[in-house]
Deep mutational scan, measured.
Amino acid sequence: RNRTTFSTFQLEELEKVFQKTHYPDVYAREQLALRTDLTEARVQVWFQNRRAKWRK
């Protein structure tokens, strides 16, 4: 699988949710996936990576 390149819009949407919660539930991830045209799995992995970055 190739690396996912996120658009500016997608990143803004993802970051917006991350500001509210670092652990969105499955429903929130599904909604975000639909809004950003990503799969729920991509959204989940983005949050994992974003939390790792945030901890540093």
Rank of each mutant, 00 (worst) to 15 (best):
R35K: 15
T5W: 13
T36Q: 00
W46P: 02
A41S: 09
R55T: 10
F47M: 06
Q10V: 07
H22W: 04
E12N: 06
D37E: 04
E30D: 05
A28D: 15
F18Y: 04
R35Q: 09
K16C: 09
N49G: 13
R35N: 05
E12L: 05
Q31P: 00
R42D: 10
T39Y: 02
F6L: 15
E30H: 15
L11C: 07
E15V: 03
F9L: 10
E13R: 02
Q19C: 11
K56I: 02
R50V: 01
D25K: 00
A33E: 04
V17I: 11
A41L: 08
T8P: 14
T39K: 04
R55M: 13
N49D: 13
E12W: 05
W46F: 04
T4S: 14
V17N: 09
Q19A: 15
R29P: 01
V17M: 12
Q10F: 00
Y27P: 06
Q31K: 11
T39P: 08
Q31D: 06
A52K: 11
K56T: 13
Q19M: 06
Q10L: 03
Y23N: 09
T8V: 11
F6D: 07
W54G: 13
R29K: 03
F47Q: 00
N49A: 12
V45I: 09
E15S: 02
L14N: 02
W54P: 07
R50K: 06
Q10N: 01
E13G: 01
R1Q: 03
H22N: 04
L34N: 10
Q19K: 14
L34Q: 15
L34F: 14
T36G: 03
L14Q: 00
R50L: 01
L14R: 01
D25V: 03
A41V: 09
K16D: 04
V17W: 04
Q19G: 10
L14G: 03
V17P: 00
N2C: 01
A52I: 08
N49H: 05
V45H: 12
Y27G: 10
L34E: 15
H22D: 04
R29M: 15
T39M: 03
K16S: 14
A28M: 08
R50Y: 01
K20N: 04
Y23Q: 01
T8I: 08
A33V: 07
E15R: 02
P24G: 02
T8Q: 13
N2I: 06
R55G: 13
E40Q: 10
A33M: 07
K53T: 15
Y27I: 14
R55H: 07
T8N: 11
Q48V: 11
T36A: 08
V45S: 13
F18R: 02
K20I: 13
Q48E: 09
Q10P: 03
E40S: 08
E13W: 05
S7L: 06
A28Y: 03
A41G: 10
A28T: 12
